[in-house]
Design a protein around this nucleic acid. Structure first.
Lengths: 404, 404
DNA sequence: GGCAGTTTGTTCTTGCGCGGCACAAACAGG
DNA sequence: CCTGTTTGTGCCGCGCAAGAACAAACTGCC
């Protein structure tokens, strides 16, 4: 007993520097066993063992002594690594046009508990954020698990480093609301431990897809999505979100994709925003948008149930062509190695994948030689999971300090 | 004597990990003294001293024991750090439409020796690169200094990771020429020690400006330049060139900047390429481009000597407006914290800086709140210096290994 | 000129993270 | 049951850097 404790002490004091990278490997599913961890970290088995033991001692991961399923290869089977199901969680929150919601998310991007969506969103950010944090705090109390931080996804560009919402979309918040500070304050007031972070929803969706979804393994990942009105973009470079020097990067909505197109409030014509969002789809298909459900839902319904209608089909093809034009422009500038589409763009793409791929390849320089892989997003609630990623980041960077 | 040698040994074996960062600080002029180095590295004085001593022992920098000029502050003056003037150099080479040339470049971006420009550029890359390497080798022999690598700047996008020239501009090389391999081979054959690198000239100019020129201190630096025909772009993110996943990033020439504009070979109209290059300027000013000197020289001459002519002035303003439109589009996507212009764009900007600044601020989202600083490039031969940076990079990353 | 105060350089000790090695453990196959 | 292979563990030592104590070089004041 005593000897075991002593050896544990020894282990605990080793491998501090590699702790973060090791946890990130387990977190993103790239280190299923200790042997793989050893190889991925490029360290000795002794160091990897010490690191894994310390992460286990911190309650973050589990090291199975007996490998459940024997690996097909010969030699001694390696210990299986997994996220500790009883480990800490983070509070993830999202505000969007249809309401707001809170969830608890563990390591590995696993949603542990979700509160029902609340609607509508009041005009006062402080009130809404207070309610969503309260919902999260209730989930936390019920779960009895430790909380190490909180993340919030908002449908607005955020000025960096202030964290004020520049253009809240589909919610009646005033532009310039200090959402980052307000959220942090509400989190603190609710007695939730750990730091609080706020990010743009499309950026966070991209981050989540990169770590746990359709973007895994991509070096330069471009995400483009349209929800209700307008188009959002995000870029993950070498595993890190690129938000630009003041948080305004990837404002892709005003790329010109149709010189003769619809007028846009920006003063130009044929912007991606007004040519490829759900409203543009409905108008192109000759439908009158109704007020009862969201434009996105109406568009989805149209695409699903009336795709036989030539007008709908033609409208879809038109939007795909415009979207392809915009993506090609982005490809020429950013040269990503993968593109992920969200919202209506994902559905349009799914309806005719080859058309979009062809347009992008045709309009981008040297697109013929290869072509960028295009995929639909693969995660449910990816903005929520992305918000959780923000909160997990300090733990991934330095577990010892973050959990101290 | 013996004691001194022993203490030197001790110093030499310390501070290995911080060696690269320290050299980079001196290289980029951010560590003029040992005290500043200590602060920038965030280490103790002892460690910084050991690092500086080892870099001096490697022949890379010099540590002046007596500070030349007393600093205005009180306390003991710190030892001055400088690049060792007798230290190693790298071979830098550049090929462009008007010829090719070789130079020797030391640390700190200082050009040590330059061979005269040779013209014209033959159609065979192997021949041209053989000649330019031979010119560099001659410089090396004459200088008697140690060479630790070679870098080449070419006017073409390079496919990564192959290093083949995709679209050689203004030189009669076949598309797809394996310039990186050919250059490396010629360098090896000439008996030049150290690895050989090849990059796009605009990218390398951006890198040089970031480290030694108008881009110093910028986090996200965007460079746009026009030489003879077409427009090139480059992006430095957190000190590293962003070339995209296959080397094709920042192909900015086909951004639409004038929907009703001139037709472009890409099939579209009003591309940045055909609207803002020297040919566009001459045509807009109503001048017939002559064959005797380059389009860039004709444009510069026109701008310098006939700026009183209303037609020239109007043409300049038109180009600035188009360029501003393109830059605004890039700002919306990349959100850089500084923009540097090269070639004719620099001259047009210098002729009326406020006009371009106003257009960019007006056309970019939230441009009013701040506005991106725009500057002309500040370095002579920035592509050449950038090519040298490529060759220095291994030394900056790990001096001990690179010089072994 | 002398003295206090400040900043920097140097030496020595200490700690600790990790590589390397030897050995034990767990599997497959003959 | 033995061999070969792969993985986990305990132990040693090395290299890197922090910290403390001291020396050195300069400013400003008396």
């Amino acid at each position: 007993m005593n000897g075991k404790a002593t050896s544990n002490r020894t282990k605990l004091e080793r491998g501090r520097g590699a702790l973060g990278p090791a946890l990130e490997l387990v977190h993103t599913g790239r280190a299923p066993t200790r042997a793989v961890l050893t190889a991925e970290l490029g360290v000795t088995r002794a160091t990897a063992g010490a690191v894994a033991a310390e992460l286990e001692a911190l309650g973050l991961i589990r090291v199975d002594s007996r490998p459940a399923a024997a690996a097909g290869s010969q030699g001694r089977p390696s210990h299986r690594l997994s996220i500790d199901e009883a480990g800490p969680v983070v509070l993830a929150a999202q505000v969007h046009g249809d309401g707001f919601r809170a969830a608890l998310v563990g390591l590995g991007g696993r949603t542990v508990a979700t509160a029902p969506t609340c609607a509508p969103v009041a005009a006062d950010p402080a009130q809404v954020l207070g309610e969503v944090v309260a919902a999260g705090a209730a989930l936390l109390r019920r779960s009895g698990r430790r909380c190490v931080g909180a993340g919030l996804a908002v449908p607005s560009a955020l000025a960096e480093p202030e964290g004020t919402a520049l253009n809240p979309l589909h919610i009646a918040w005033p532009a310039g609301s200090p959402v980052r500070d307000v959220f942090a304050e509400r989190v603190r007031d609710a007695g939730i431990t750990g730091p609080a972070f706020t990010g743009n929803d499309v950026n966070l969706a991209a981050l989540a897809e990169h770590r746990h979804g359709a973007g895994r393994g991509a070096r330069h990942l471009l995400c483009v999505a349209t929800g209700h009105r307008g188009v959002g973009g995000a870029l993950v470079l070498d595993g890190r979100l690129h938000t630009g020097s003041s948080g305004l990067a990837l404002e892709v909505g005003h790329l010109t994709v149709s010189p003769e197109g619809r007028p846009c409030h920006c003063g130009s014509r044929g912007c991606l925003d007004v040519e490829t969002d759900p409203l543009a789809f409905l108008l192109s298909a000759g439908r009158e948008p109704g007020p009862e459900v969201s434009l996105l839902q109406q568009s989805r319904e149209l695409l699903r149930s009336e795709y036989d209608d030539p007008a709908v089909r033609r409208a879809g093809a038109e939007l795909v062509d415009r979207l392809g034009q915009g993506l090609a422009g982005l490809v020429n500038i950013l040269n990503p190695d993968r593109i992920i589409l969200g919202g209506l763009h994902r559905e349009l793409f799914a309806a005719d994948p080859e058309r979009l791929r062809a347009v992008v390849a045709d309009r981008s320089l040297w697109g013929r030689s290869g072509g960028v892989p295009i995929l639909g997003c693969a995660l449910d609630h990816n903005s929520l999971v992305g918000a959780a990623e923000l909160a997990w980041q300090p733990v991934l960077d330095d577990p010892l300090t973050a959990l101290a």
